[in-house]
Design a protein around this nucleic acid. Structure first.
Lengths: 211, 211
DNA sequence: GGATTTTTCTATAGGTTAATAGATGGAATT
DNA sequence: AATTCCATCTATTAACCTATAGAAAAATCC
């Protein structure tokens, strides 16, 4: 009698089992050659299947790009949000944000690079969606910095917007060099945090003021 | 008589007068759509000529890309070198380097963006050439920072390499946002310089030590 | 083991694009 | 005025690439 019920078999759960691999191959190829420089044939070659078989997993090349970009950005956002609301000093939270922002570069470098460099080639609609996430991330950084200024942890004359763009810029750039440079990502994060918070200059001998 | 002499006419001087315009159009289109996303037809449309006419000015699309990239990077290098050798403090020179590195973003944003984002699509040979310039530029920054450490203007525990990559990363990222953000480039430069030299944190009241 | 579902394959249509060849019109030169 | 040179045009080729349709094969289920 089961006519109304959900499909009786559990086979549906087994659909498109290789989907994650397919998207990963797409990420690799898009990262290497750029969206327009990559062909669906290139992706198929990585997987050892025929070009046309890919269309069982995505409906168009652009759809594949969106899947890759989403995986590239979603990690950042949630992690950052969780850090921003912690009951810690702005200084500490900013340090954690930097670390958290750099770590996907190690985990899924291809996805991140595609998100950073190729999202501009998404069709209007999906580009907007992705852009919203991106701006949300900027906001999280900016708000923490503004709090730091209000709490007098940071200079009063600091421009929170420019500082945000500077920090994100230096972190994102790491996606270009972290393969070649031999620096561990934790060390990079620590160094970057110290750079923006304390600067390069020598401080006077006096210990840091407590507030 | 004149058989051995150089061509007698001065016509040769008038060859390919529009070449600069052609390259500028290519820069604009490559910057907007990326190298592979742009078609030679797009470039021709900007100029109001036919697609095939472009090949009077360059021998291939890739050759056009190289011309654009060269114009995108050559400005940086010479300016930076001149600054690095001035008899000033490392702090001042670094501030000037940052300012000098940002200014082409205003002068020729398309060339710079193409150099930054599309040079990876150059054929092997020209990519190497361009890469050499790029590394030379990094070196200039890094050397000034190292001097600053040696002179005790900067912290002894500073990692000159990472600081260089951080500074170039934040400056280069400006090519992505400086159109949308309403900040004047001089102000950006000043803010960035202060950020990396003094940091965001409040300093103790004591004045900076003189050496 | 037969039926059903999932995955991959073959074949191909249809559109786009970089690049070449040779012609044309106009400007500069003599 | 005839000639040479420059810039652009027309026409076309050959390669390439995305996406679709339907058949075949492999895996799963009962």
């Amino acid at each position: 009698m089961n006519i109304v019920a959900l499909p009786v078999t559990r086979r549906n759960a087994n659909q498109r089992r290789r989907a994650p691999q397919i998207i990963e191959a797409a990420a690799r190829v898009f990262a290497e050659r750029g969206f327009h420089g990559a062909t669906t044939q290139d992706i198929a070659d990585v997987l050892g299947i025929k070009q046309a078989s890919l269309y069982y997993y995505f409906s168009s090349k652009e759809a594949a790009l969106e899947l890759v970009c989403v995986k590239g950005v979603e990690g950042f956002f949630d992690a950052a949000k969780a850090i921003a609301v912690r009951p810690e000093s702005a200084t500490n939270r900013l340090t954690l944000l930097i670390k958290s922002h750099l770590s996907p570069l190690v985990d899924r470098p291809d996805f991140v690079r595609v998100f950073l460099n190729e999202r501009q080639h998404l069709p209007r609609e999906s580009r907007r969606r992705i852009g919203r996430w991106s701006r949300g991330l900027e906001r999280i950084f900016e708000d923490v910095i503004k709090e730091g200024i209000a709490q007098r942890e940071f200079r009063a004359d600091l421009d929170a917007r420019l500082a945000t763009l500077a920090i994100l810029g230096m972190c994102n750039a790491a996606s270009n060099w972290h393969r070649k440079e031999s620096t561990a990502i934790d060390r990079t994060a620590a160094e970057f945090a110290q750079l923006v918070i304390d600067g390069m200059g020598k401080r006077p001998a006096a210990p840091r003021r407590r507030r």
